[in-house]
Nucleic acid binder design. Structure first.
Lengths: 244, 244
DNA sequence: CGTATAATATGACGAAGCGTCAAAAAATGT
DNA sequence: ACATTTTTTGACGCTTCGTCATATTATACG
C-alpha cells in the first residue's frame, strides 16, 4: 500500500508544482485544468482524480505555501534575541514572503473567502485550518513568552490575542494593499510594506512591549534580522528586483 | 443631446442596480451578463453596449460604493468633536460599511487587483483612482488638522501619511479577515473588527494623538458616534443581525 | 407625412473552460 | 494465461463569455 500511496502523493505534488509554475507564468486566468494536464502529460480526467476542482488546487497550493511560511515563522520564533526582536522577525518574514511570492500570497487570501472555501472538501479545509492554527500559535507563543518575562505589562486586557490580531491585520492589510494597482507614489505615499514596519513598532510600543522603539533603531534591527535569519530570501529578493 | 445622455446614464444605473441585487441574492458566481440582461428586460448585447465585461460592472458598482463610503467619511470629517474623535469616526464608518455591505466591500478589494483592473477601461480606472483619492484625502485632512492644532506632536517623520496608512491597512486587514471563513472563535479570538477598534486607538496613542485613550473610554466614544453620526446605519445593522 | 439615414437592440454563434462518464488501458491477483 | 480491479483517457454536455450581422427603432429632412 505504501508504494501506491507514495506514487499518489508524488503526483499530487507534481500537479501542484505544475499549477504553481503556470500561475507564476500566466497568472490566475491562465491556470486551467487542461493546461495543467498538458503540462504534466496526463489527461484532464487524471487531474480530476486528484483535485475535483480548481479551488481544490488553489487550496493545495495555499497549504504548501502556509507550510513554508510556517517554516519562516519558526525561524523567527527560534531566534535567540529579545522577544521584541523575535516578534519583529515575524513581521519581516510575513513581508518577505509576500514580496517573494505575491501570487501565492494572493491565493492564500482568496482561499480564505467562504465562496471559494465551500467548494473545497472537508479534509482539505481541515488541513487549511490546522495550518492557520500553526501560524497563529507561533505568534501567540512569542507574545506569551514576552508576557511571562515581563517585557509586556500584564495590566492590559485581551492580550495576547489582541496583539497578535493587531499585527496580523496590519501585516495582512499592507501585503494586500501593496499588491493592488493603487499608485501609492502618485498619491504621495510610501509603499505600505515600508509603513507597516514603522506602524507595527508603533503598535508594539503602545502595548509597552520592551524595549520600546525609542531605545533602538528599527532599521538597524531590520538589517540585522535580514542578515541573520533570512539571508537566502534577501538574495532571492534582490535577484527578483534586478529582473524587474 | 442631454436627454440621450440622461437615458444612457439612467440605464447604466439600472444595470448596476440589477447587478448589485443579483450579487446580493446569488453571490459572485450567480452574476452573469445574461442574468442581468434578463433582469432588466433587455438583451445581452445591450448590456455589453454599456459595460464591455463583468469586470467593468464590478468596477462600476465599486465606484458607487466608494461614493457612499465617501459620504460616510464626510460625516466623520464634518463632526464637531475633537480631531481624535473625528478620526475615530472614520474607523467606525469603515467598519460599519463593511458590516452592512460585505459583498460590496469584497468587490472594492477585488477591483484593486491588477489582474482585474487591467480589464477595465482607462476611463473607469481614472474614476476609481479619483474615488480612492477622495477617500484618502478626507483622512489626510483630519490628520493635518490635528497636527495644525497640536493634537499630534510634529517631531515624528512620515506623518500624516504613515498614520493614514496605518489606520487604512489595519482597517482593511480587519475587514477582510472578518469576512473570511476563518473560525476566530474556535481559535479563541474575538472578532477582528472588534480588535481593530482597540488596536487603532493603540496606534493613535503611539503617535501621541491627544487626547490619549487613557483619558477617555473608547467604548463610550463609540456609542456616542454611533448615535450622533451613524444612527441610520446602526438601525440597518440591527435589522440585518436579527435576520441572521 | 413618408422616406433615408443613423443609432440602438437583438440573439444566434463560435470559442473556451468546467466537470462527467463510459470505454480503453494498465496493473494486479490467481 | 486469464479474470478482476484500478487507473487513465478524451469525447461529451453544459455554461458563460464576448462578437457581430441583422432587425428594430429613433431621428433628420425633403
Amino acid at each position: 500500500m505504501t508504494r501506491k500511496q507514495r506514487e499518489l502523493f508524488e503526483r499530487e505534488q507534481l500537479i501542484l508544482d505544475s499549477a504553481q509554475k503556470i500561475l507564476q507564468k500566466e497568472g490566475m486566468q491562465g491556470l486551467t485544468m487542461e493546461r495543467i494536464a498538458a503540462d504534466i502529460e496526463y489527461s484532464k480526467g487524471t487531474v480530476y482524480n486528484h483535485f475535483s476542482s480548481k479551488e481544490e488546487i488553489i487550496s493545495g497550493i495555499s497549504c504548501r505555501c502556509m507550510s513554508s511560511l510556517t517554516e519562516m515563522f519558526g525561524r523567527a520564533r527560534d531566534y535567540s534575541g529579545s522577544h521584541r526582536e523575535r516578534i519583529a522577525a515575524i513581521g519581516i518574514a510575513q513581508s518577505l514572503y509576500a514580496q517573494l511570492h505575491p501570487l501565492e500570497t494572493q491565493n492564500m487570501q482568496i482561499i480564505k473567502s467562504p465562496a471559494i472555501r465551500e467548494k473545497v472538501s472537508e479534509e482539505k479545509q481541515l488541513r487549511l485550518f490546522q495550518q492557520e492554527q500553526n501560524i497563529t500559535s507561533i505568534v501567540l507563543e512569542i507574545v506569551r513568552d514576552a508576557i511571562n518575562d515581563n517585557d509586556i505589562p500584564k495590566d492590559q486586557p485581551h492580550i495576547p490575542h489582541s496583539i497578535m490580531l493587531g499585527l496580523w491585520t496590519m501585516g495582512y492589510g499592507s501585503n494586500l494593499l501593496s499588491m493592488t494597482a493603487i499608485p501609492f507614489e502618485k498619491l504621495g505615499m510610501q509603499d505600505p510594506l515600508e509603513m507597516a514596519w514603522v506602524n507595527s513598532h508603533k503598535l508594539l510600543d503602545s502595548y509597552q512591549w520592551q524595549p520600546l522603539s525609542s531605545e533602538f533603531d528599527i532599521y538597524e534591527l531590520r538589517e540585522k534580522l535580514y542578515k541573520e535569519l533570512f539571508p537566502e530570501e534577501i538574495k532571492q529578493l534582490n535577484k527578483l528586483k534586478i529582473k524587474i
